[in-house]
Design a protein around this nucleic acid. Sequence first.
DNA 1: ATGACTGCAAAGACTTTGCATCTTT
DNA 2: AAAGATGCAAAGTCTTTGCAGTCAT
Lengths: 130, 130
Amino acid sequence: MEGTTKQFKKRNAILACLQQTHAHPSAEMVHDMLRASHPDISLATVYRNLTRFKQQGLIQSLGTVNGVERFDANTSPHVHFVCNCCDAVIDLPQIEVPQSLGQDTEKYAGCRVQGCQLTFTGLCGKCANS
Amino acid sequence: MEGTTKQFKKRNAILACLQQTHAHPSAEMVHDMLRASHPDISLATVYRNLTRFKQQGLIQSLGTVNGVERFDANTSPHVHFVCNCCDAVIDLPQIEVPQSLGQDTEKYAGCRVQGCQLTFTGLCGKCANS
DNA sequence: ATGACTGCAAAGACTTTGCATCTTT
DNA sequence: AAAGATGCAAAGTCTTTGCAGTCAT
């Protein structure tokens, strides 16, 4: 068979991994997660494919948390919370950034806004209670 | 004299540099800017003092832009615009993130919010017209 | 003397890249 | 055979750190 999910195609596994998790993983986290099913997958392949997916718009980067880039397969704009203690990243699909803020930005900065990212930081539930 | 601004005290020069610019510089940008007045300043000293200022709360990090950390001596929470083309960072003191969003975040994520960062991205005035 | 700050170079952490190999068409 | 994907190791960037020398008190 020649479908899109041949077992030896690691690219699909990497994308699937990102789509199935809510952990907003780093390259190394993806690598670790895939080791069970693909014992010989290399970190370079993970990096190469993450870069590719990013360029294709299949995933987005959340920027770096403690020096490490984190990724999200949910490319629709949404708000995140990052725990200062354990580096967990939590989605907040319920929250919306008022459109007017983008318009104000264009007005005040004389720029053209293409995207926006709102990130709250603090302590996640677990870390707050320990 | 023994004031706080002895010429051989580079720490003050680094902080002053950050306070006097709106460029939200990286360590290397600070280093370059200070070379004129302090020809022998080392990049390590800049990094060391930036780390120190951050810990002391004298400056804040904006996170990384294209893999390079950027700093701001304005520690009051405020919105930024980052140009995708030239990496310029622009302050938007006029814009405010509704308080309610932080409260909603605590509610939905079950977390304790300590800070928030809103960053718009796009093309700055210069890059949009060229 | 003691403690603090710095330059330099080495080390570290994260990411990218060159090359040979293997797979797929 | 040709194009593409991958592993491995080397290289590259950005940042931190160890150590010795300098300055301040």
